[in-house]
C-alpha cells in the first residue's frame, strides 16, 4: 500500500520540483528595491539599496495594530539584508536570508480608564528561507520585534503554485496561501489566500484574509 502511494507521489513531486519564482527581500547589485505590505493591522513600506550582490541597506516604516485595536505601534528603522546562502539548481533556487533592523518604536496601549504612550528602541533580527521553481513556491520566515517589555515577534509561512509557466516577458499568475502571526498583537493566525502576478518589471499580490480584510503587497526593483 505504502509502496503504491510512494510510486504515485514521488513522480508527482518530481514533476513539481523539476519545473523551474523567487522574490527575495533585495534586488540585484546596485539596485533599489521598494516593497509594501498593507492590510488593516499591518502596514509596512520598505526600500533598500544593494551595495553588493549579497548585501543591502535600507529604511522601513511599519504600522502595527492589535486585532481589538487596543494597541498600536509605529516603527521607523534602518535595515540590513544579507543573502546568507543561495542554492541554484537547474530548475530551482533556494535562499537563506538574514534581515535585521534597529529603529524607534512609538506605542500606545489603550487600557480601560487610561492611555499609555511610550517611545523605545526596537531591534528586529530575523531569518527567511525560500524555495522556488517556476511552478511552486515555499517561504518560511521568523523575525524578532523586540524592545524593553515588548515582544511582537513575527512568524510567517507561505506556499503556492503558478497556474502555468510563462515566458520571461509575460505576466505569470500564482495562488499563494500565507499564514502569519504577530505576537502580542494578535492571538490568532492570520490566513490569507492571495493572487500573485509576477512579471520581469513588477510583483503584486492581493487577497482577503480569514477576518475578511483586504491585503495588498508589491515589490519593485529599479
Amino acid at each position: 500500500m505504502f509502496y503504491t502511494r510512494f510510486k504515485v507521489v514521488l513522480p508527482l513531486l518530481a514533476i513539481l520540483l523539476s519545473q523551474a519564482a523567487t522574490a527575495g527581500p533585495m534586488g540585484f547589485n546596485e539596485s533599489f528595491m521598494a516593497m509594501g505590505d498593507f492590510n488593516n493591522n499591518w502596514r509596512e513600506s520598505f526600500i533598500n539599496y544593494a551595495v553588493t550582490p549579497r548585501d543591502a541597506f535600507g529604511v522601513s516604516a511599519t504600522y502595527m495594530r492589535a486585532d481589538d485595536k487596543s494597541k498600536s505601534r509605529t516603527l521607523e528603522e534602518i535595515t540590513y539584508t544579507r543573502l546568507v546562502k543561495r542554492w541554484n539548481a537547474p530548475h530551482a533556487q533556494a535562499n537563506l536570508w538574514f534581515q535585521g533592523g534597529v529603529g524607534a518604536l512609538q506605542g500606545e496601549n489603550k487600557l480601560i480608564g487610561e492611555n499609555r504612550d511610550f517611545d523605545k528602541v526596537m531591534i528586529t533580527p530575523g531569518v527567511q528561507f525560500d524555495y522556488e521553481t517556476t511552478r511552486v513556491y515555499f517561504q518560511a520566515s521568523h523575525r524578532l520585534y523586540r524592545a524593553s517589555d515588548i515582544n511582537h515577534d513575527f512568524t510567517s509561512v507561505r506556499a503556492g503554485f503558478s497556474f502555468y509557466e510563462t515566458d520571461y516577458d509575460k505576466t505569470q499568475p500564482w495562488l499563494i496561501l500565507e499564514a502569519r502571526n504577530m505576537n502580542g498583537l494578535s492571538e490568532k493566525i492570520e490566513v490569507t489566500p492571495m493572487v500573485r502576478l509576477i512579471n520581469k518589471s513588477f510583483f503584486v499580490e492581493a487577497g482577503v484574509n480569514n477576518s475578511r480584510e483586504p491585503r495588498f503587497n508589491f515589490m519593485y526593483i529599479f
Partner: peptide, 16 residues
C-alpha cells in the same frame, strides 16, 4: 544558467 526560475528576479541579468 542554473537557478533562473523567476522573471522578476532574473531582470538583473538583462539590465546588467
Amino acid at each position: 544558467v542554473n537557478g533562473m526560475v523567476c522573471a522578476f528576479c532574473a531582470q538583473g541579468i538583462e539590465k546588467k
